[in-house]
């Protein structure tokens, strides 16, 4: 049987006085992201507990984990990539401002 997708947008969302649509869009994205992170964290926790339960991981092993040099390097790159990805708009905004001041000062 072919099934129709359930609707996701309610009919009638009154504007909140003094708020921009963008504010609500941001809020929606932040709630969704917080939800994703919470689910991810719980899933990781469940994985750890199951691994410990089944003897594949020792309790405290993750907190006590000391990566070797190669692993440290790879983890460093992962963190850098995250920072660059998440905060790209701020870097772009700063570069744009810089370009503007350079242009107006004639250099």
């Amino acid at each position: 049987m072919t099934r129709k997708a359930l609707p996701r947008t309610p009919n009638r969302l009154d504007p909140i006085e003094g708020s921009r649509d963008l504010d609500e869009q941001f809020m929606g994205m932040i709630v969704a992201l917080a939800s994703e992170v919470t689910v991810l964290r719980a899933r990781l926790d469940a994985a750890e507990r199951l691994l410990i339960e089944h003897g594949a991981l020792q309790a405290g092993a993750i907190d006590g984990y000391e990566p070797d040099e190669a692993a440290q390097k790879e983890r460093e790159a992962l963190r850098q990539a995250s920072v660059n990805k998440v905060f790209r708009p701020l870097r772009e905004a700063a570069q744009k401002d810089l370009a503007t001041v350079q242009e107006t000062s004639g250099r």
Binding site: P10, I16, G18, M27
Partner: peptide
């Protein structure tokens, strides 16, 4: 309505409700 925190409280309340149904 002049308080920003009032508006974000309202928006957050509604968003939590929307997230629930979603």
């Amino acid at each position: 309505a002049r308080h920003e925190s009032f508006r974000t409280w309202l928006a957050m309340k509604r968003e939590s409700q929307r997230h629930l149904w979603s």
